[in-house]
């Protein structure tokens, strides 16, 4: 059952990352990878909230491990950062790594606090 829930969450999360990335890129011309930052921060916010709630293992598998896990990515973030550096955009590369980590940590903390505030 857990395996099916993880699979279901991932089957939605991975294509949503691709579609979000396309949609974000279509709205700006900057080489900065805003699309990947968007999914990584959004996924960290949701997982932070899931971690704070007294959820069942089924919800953790579906929303946490499956959906948030597949929506967010380190392989894309790592590759982008190396490529920006190699393209000569050192500032973009540094900003991509540091902003992703700071915003992801902030989103995880915010999601956790928000879920606590809502559930009391």
């Amino acid at each position: 059952m857990t395996v099916l829930l993880i699979a279901l969450g991932a089957a939605v999360g991975a294509p949503l990352r691709y579609l979000t990335d396309r949609a974000v890129q279509a709205r700006h011309a900057s080489p900065f990878p805003w699309g990947t930052l968007t999914v990584n921060v959004a996924g960290s916010l949701v997982l932070g909230a899931v971690a704070a709630l007294p959820t069942s293992p089924a919800v953790t598998a579906l929303v946490g491990t499956g959906f948030c896990g597949a929506l967010t990515t380190w392989s894309t973030l790592g590759y982008e950062t190396v490529r920006l550096h190699r393209e000569g955009r050192r500032g973009h590369a540094l900003a991509n790594a540091l902003v992703s980590i700071a915003a992801g940590l902030g989103a995880a903390t915010g999601g956790y606090a928000l879920a606590h505030a809502v559930t009391g």
Partner: peptide, 27 residues
Amino acid sequence: RPFLGVGVLGGFTTFSTYAVDAQRAIA
């Protein structure tokens, strides 16, 4: 590329667990 890069490797790696595990360690 969509199957191996976006799907398999994107689904294998995770940023949300990275951020939340770090936040929980701090907490």
